[in-house]
Design a protein around this nucleic acid. Sequence first.
DNA 1: ATTTATACCTATTTGTTATAGGTATAAGCT
DNA 2: AGCTTATACCTATAACAAATAGGTATAAAT
Lengths: 114, 114
Amino acid sequence: MSKTNAAFMSGVPELLLLSLLAREEMYGYQLVRAIRVVSNEAFKLAEGVVYPVLHALEEKQLIKAKQRLHEGRTRIYYALTAKGKTRLKELTTTWERVSGGVAATLNAAEVAHV
Amino acid sequence: MSKTNAAFMSGVPELLLLSLLAREEMYGYQLVRAIRVVSNEAFKLAEGVVYPVLHALEEKQLIKAKQRLHEGRTRIYYALTAKGKTRLKELTTTWERVSGGVAATLNAAEVAHV
DNA sequence: ATTTATACCTATTTGTTATAGGTATAAGCT
DNA sequence: AGCTTATACCTATAACAAATAGGTATAAAT
């Protein structure tokens, strides 16, 4: 019931970041664009969302940062740790349980309506 | 990252309640059990979750309460309003966008990994 | 010289879920 | 008669994460 109607988003930024970083290491600004593209524009997470989550993930040692220079500009690349992989599996399982449960409930409601 | 690891739940209680009440009017205690059953045990929302959401939905006039007596016991039945139906459609659409976006991202990550 | 794109960042607001209590009646058990 | 379980409702507080709205600085493009 936020103004911008951002329901169903809890845990999603974390899941998206971990799953993208499971592919290859990436930096924050790149992740912001990748999320938009890979999700088919379903998600447009602003930098103000992505960076704090990255910092939290790093603090929990789910990802690890490596600073690199690219054309005179600093980029901070993040890579998944072993701990991060475990967490990604957990989150994926939870996601499947939740989305399965919602689907089951919505279908039940639909069936009852026909 | 709550202790109980309840990710992906934002907006879910509201969606579940509205979609169950779209079937037929129900009372709080009944909804608590129905959510457990219909979701195939995916969700076990406690009464302390369900009742406050019902009150919030009522205040927003998405559902309407009718008190009834059943074997000497008071039950408060809730029914979806027209406004509630609209909200349910909105929420369902949002849910589909989010779950579709997550699926797309998870698949992309998986494909890249093979 | 100015704007746009890149690349990073934080503080604050918001509000919802979950927990942990609590009350009261009816029914079932010993 | 006394105790426990099931039914049926409730609230206060904690906890936390997402979104907004800012902000800085360099490189490239106009």
